[in-house]
């Protein structure tokens, strides 16, 4: 199970490719590849986005389902998806907290 991730060129923000070909700011909006054909489709979309200078550092990463939510297998990608573990007030996790509080 894989998703395509990258960093946005203008500000370096971690983003994931969504089903509508936009770059989502949360992992949960990512399109999931369950087979090789979808992985190849995502990889092609990543290369195209790279050439269009939308993003940099494009990579397919492994994810798994955890209580119905997507969770990267590697800690590095879990931290990218959330923010620094020593600063819960920063990164995606902070935006999610604000959204929940609202």
């Amino acid at each position: 199970m894989k998703v395509l991730t990258a960093n946005r060129l203008t500000n370096g923000e971690a983003v994931w490719l969504a089903g509508d070909h936009s770059w989502a700011v949360t992992l949960q909006a990512a399109e999931v590849a369950l087979d090789e054909a979808t992985e190849e489709k995502l990889a092609r979309a990543g290369t195209a986005a790279l050439l269009k200078n939308e993003v940099v550092d494009v990579a397919l990463i492994d994810v798994e389902l955890d209580s119905g939510a997507l969770r990267p297998v590697r800690l590095r990608e879990r931290i990218r998806a959330a923010g620094p573990t020593n600063r819960r007030d920063l990164g995606k996790q902070a935006e999610l907290q604000i959204a929940v509080a609202a």
């Binding site: 960093n7 500000n11 370096g12 923000e13 971690a14 940099v56 550092d57 931290i79 620094p84 990164g91």
Partner: peptide
């Protein structure tokens, strides 16, 4: 990339 590095700009996990 080599031009930004010469000016101290890296790309890290969350941002530049």
């Amino acid at each position: 990339k080599p031009l930004r590095l010469m000016n101290g700009v890296y790309l890290q996990l969350h941002a530049y």
